[in-house]
Design a binder for these strands. Sequence first.
DNA 1: TCATAAGTGGACTGATGGTCCGCTTAACGA
DNA 2: TCGTTAAGCGGACCATCAGTCCACTTATGA
Lengths: 203, 203
Amino acid sequence: MSAEKPAGLPIAGERRERADAAANRVRILAAARQVLAERGAEGTTLDAVAEQAGVGKGTVFRRFGDRSGLFQALLDEHLRVFQDAFMFGPPPLGPGASPGERLAALLEGLLDMEDGHLELILALERDRWKAPIGGYIVLSLHAENLIREISPRLDAPVLAQLLLNAVNVNVVRHLRQETGTSLAAIKASVRALVAGLEMSARS
Amino acid sequence: MSAEKPAGLPIAGERRERADAAANRVRILAAARQVLAERGAEGTTLDAVAEQAGVGKGTVFRRFGDRSGLFQALLDEHLRVFQDAFMFGPPPLGPGASPGERLAALLEGLLDMEDGHLELILALERDRWKAPIGGYIVLSLHAENLIREISPRLDAPVLAQLLLNAVNVNVVRHLRQETGTSLAAIKASVRALVAGLEMSARS
DNA sequence: TCATAAGTGGACTGATGGTCCGCTTAACGA
DNA sequence: TCGTTAAGCGGACCATCAGTCCACTTATGA
């Protein structure tokens, strides 16, 4: 719902984005969300999005570069909220709780996001099939820092990747849709994993 | 290099696969391996494989059904060896070691396989982007059993998925190629994760 | 009101997975 | 050895999409 460049003054030397262009961006994002909801990740083509938005295909590409750029823009909205929450929000996700609690909350929050936007994230996964979740740099760095806080003896960069990928979208999809597991059950196991890490780091 | 149906007598009511067909299957598999090695997962098209094998494209599809079927057949060869090793081989992978040791060995073995056949597994990932590693049923079941042995209090099906996906191909690719991490370092962190699970299960 | 560069749409291209069907040939029984 | 037959073959063909291009339109600032 939020526009990409809300209102701000034009940067020196740049013109402001034209009003009709900004409106189209919003319409395209909305159309993408709708098509994703109606047809799922697999059935969402850019032609369909363009048609739903009432816009030419060229316009979609001019705004977002390529397929994954469009979905990335969509995901970034949610990601930004999530980042705010774990950087500045209340514990256990935000500062104030123990690093172990925060790490668990981070992974659980990721699970929530994936569960809430399954098709979107799957669509992204289709295009970026060679990128791990840990490719989201802010998430990785934050996870690394928390792991380092738990114990400097742990290999933070590697463990961050392992843990973030443990809660990959595909895991969520598989467990939720194919084996009917509840989100709470997944979270419980994630907590067990983090708790174990804390214990083994202490010994 | 091994043929799919080596020599066996024809099942009642079925004809044996024609000799030229069997030969073609072998040539196609070899061609696929070579193209994968030369052009990587991204550049490996079925036309290229067919040409390299000196065979029509239709033949490739007749034998393997579709793109992922071809790569699956290729991977199955390695998977079969690996399965043998953890079902009947020597410890710590095979029976004889503690369940925790075996679980760690399973994940490390998976890492070895992924590292050794990166492009192949990435190619498979591209087609089966909505399937988690845990989709390899034998692997999942084996991991589940080991986890149950560690402690019946653990949620074995969920933890198996989490752990198997923690060592996803993409993690390996990312850590190895982009951050230059050694395989040994990844294995060490996997062991830390499993060790932690054992400890937290005991308390 | 005008000049202009930003924006637009949709026809077009290129790549690639997958299908089809008339021709070839291995396999088997007589 | 030879004839019959269905399994197998090749590669032209098709369908689907992501992404490009460019002649035309229009918002914007002077």
